Simulated scan of single mutants.
Amino acid sequence: MSTKDLEPEHAESMLRLIEASLQVKRRHQFYHWTQGDMQRLVPHRVSACGAYDLGVRDLTFNVLNSVPMPDDLLSSLSDMHSPVMQHLHAQWNRSAQQVSWVDLTDLAPHDRSARGLCEQGYRWLLTHGVTRPGRPNELETFFVFGQPGCLPDDQSAHILNLIQPYLHATFLRVHCTERELSGMGQHMRGPALAGGVDKPRAAASITDREREILRWVREGMSNQAISEELGISALTVKNHIQKILRKLGAANRAQAVAKAMSMNLFSLTVEQPSRRAPGESFLATGH
């Protein structure tokens, strides 16, 4: 199979994805890049993206989830040495290091995290990776995609195989940029401030209403659209978002969503957003 075998809309999505990849340099940009055309090509609700880190001589992972997941499951996907990730890697190796759908059923009776993933609907996970130059037994990047309730399909696997070079290059760029900026921050601010925002304190300071608004921001809704959904003014929404950015230490909405995901804030989000809260008025509009 080749790009000629793709439906026209998938071919167009792939072209947009490749073009947009050149602008992706930060972690929050990578998250949004995977939530656009990538979702049309390789549908997923959770992804684990790992890159080899020379500093620790191992793969370090970012887990990106657009739906709430228990912390222990997120942890298992972010650790290359967890039974789940070891199983995924082993199965990928057995498939001659080709894109693979991996079934967690066999591992589930022996590992709580694998069992939890199966119970959440992630029985099948789509995997692919790239080995280090000249070291075929060592990974340079490794990617895992999961969609609740999905079954293996050749099209998703074929598309992931086609976009893998761009996924690999883009995530390596993000990994290097974040590592350089982290080192720069450590040098400029000192060890006490190198970690940035105090995550537990920031997470605790986010109110239920702010989580609710963050949920709609994650869906790509504008201030006006959120205001209409919640029955409050667009100016009120804007004020809430400014408070969220300040609390999370985020520069923009995309970065706020990425940071909220890393704190697992969406697991506390109300499933059905409430309408106008008592005491909130619809007096002004804003964007």
Rank of each mutant, 00 (worst) to 15 (best):
P165Q: 05
A284H: 09
H44F: 10
A254D: 15
S82N: 08
I159T: 10
T269D: 13
S205F: 06
M263A: 09
T170Y: 03
W101I: 10
G195Y: 07
L59K: 02
D79I: 04
F30V: 08
A108Y: 04
A114I: 07
E228Q: 09
H158S: 15
Y122V: 03
R112H: 05
A51T: 04
L248T: 11
L230Y: 01
V46I: 12
D58E: 13
T285G: 11
R215K: 10
R173D: 07
E219T: 02
L17M: 14
A114S: 08
S47N: 09
P68R: 01
Q35M: 14
Q35A: 13
E119M: 08
C150M: 09
S95I: 00
R115P: 00
T60Y: 00
V42D: 01
V270Y: 04
C150Q: 09
L117M: 11
K238P: 00
L235N: 02
S100A: 15
A114C: 04
V174F: 12
A204M: 09
K243Y: 03
P152T: 03
L245Y: 11
L162W: 04
D53E: 15
A11Q: 14
R115K: 12
N252A: 08
L22K: 14
V102F: 00
Q91V: 05
S2Q: 06
S227A: 15
D53T: 10
E9F: 12
E180W: 06
R115G: 07
G134W: 04
S2M: 05
A284K: 01
L167A: 08
L54H: 08
R27K: 11
V67E: 12
L167H: 04
L230Q: 04
D72H: 13
T3R: 13
E280P: 00
H10C: 09
R275K: 13
N93V: 13
Y122A: 01
A51Q: 02
S113K: 03
T207L: 12
A203Y: 02
A260C: 02
G195I: 03
A96K: 11
R215A: 15
H175S: 15
L107T: 03
H158I: 09
E7F: 12
K25R: 13
P165L: 07
D111R: 07
L181C: 04
L104C: 04
T3G: 01
Q242L: 14
R26G: 00
H81D: 11
